[in-house]
Simulated scan of single mutants.
Amino acid sequence: MSLVLVLTLAGQRVALLADAMESVVEIEAIAPVPGAAPHVAGLSALRSRVLTVIDARASLGFGPTESPRDAVVAIVDGHPYALLVDTVEDVVEGGEPRPLGASAGPGWSRVARAAVEAEGSLMLLLDLPALIAGPAAEAA
């Protein structure tokens, strides 16, 4: 069993491994970065450090998050990121990750690493680095 962070993204309940997360925050202000990839919402400050803000919906190819506020903060390859999501629910115990039995569908296939049962539901367990990398990483 492992702890997972349950959240809603693009209208679907999904999970991230909790040990990869640093905190859950509300993003107050995002400064756009000219020339950045479309899934990079911009930069934000949190406790005297700069975070690259990633729009998870845009990373999936579903368009930008409307009125983003909830974000999950994580360090990936030594760099701090804030991942904008629809809502963050809770950290709960999840079952053992299991292979996906079929394609996760458009947008999700690139970031779904497995399925995990949590709170009586089977949900996609997402790959955080793949979400951060965005859709251009798949084409490269």
Rank of each mutant, 00 (worst) to 15 (best):
V53T: 09
S67I: 05
V33N: 07
L43A: 12
E28K: 13
V40E: 05
V53A: 03
V40M: 06
A45P: 02
L43P: 02
R47G: 09
H39T: 08
G63D: 10
H39N: 09
A37D: 11
A37R: 11
H39L: 03
L60G: 09
S44G: 10
S48D: 15
R49I: 09
L46D: 11
G63R: 04
E26W: 13
V50D: 06
T65P: 01
I54H: 08
L60D: 07
A56D: 07
A41G: 03
P68C: 04
P64D: 12
S44P: 05
S44N: 04
F62E: 02
I54A: 10
E66L: 14
I54Q: 09
A36S: 13
A41N: 01
P32R: 08
P64F: 00
A29K: 09
S59C: 03
R49A: 11
P34R: 03
V50A: 12
L46I: 11
A45I: 15
G61N: 06
P32T: 05
I27L: 12
F62H: 06
P68K: 01
S44R: 05
A41I: 01
T52Y: 08
V53Q: 02
A31Q: 12
G63L: 08
L51H: 03
A36N: 07
P68V: 08
E28V: 14
S59H: 09
A36Q: 07
L51N: 01
A41M: 01
G61D: 03
S44I: 13
A41S: 03
H39V: 06
A37M: 10
A56G: 03
R57S: 00
L60P: 06
A37V: 08
L60R: 08
V33L: 11
D55Q: 11
V40K: 05
S67A: 15
G63T: 11
A29N: 12
A41V: 03
D55H: 07
A41Y: 02
F62Q: 01
G61L: 07
E28Y: 07
D55P: 01
R57W: 00
P68H: 05
A56H: 05
A29S: 10
F62M: 04
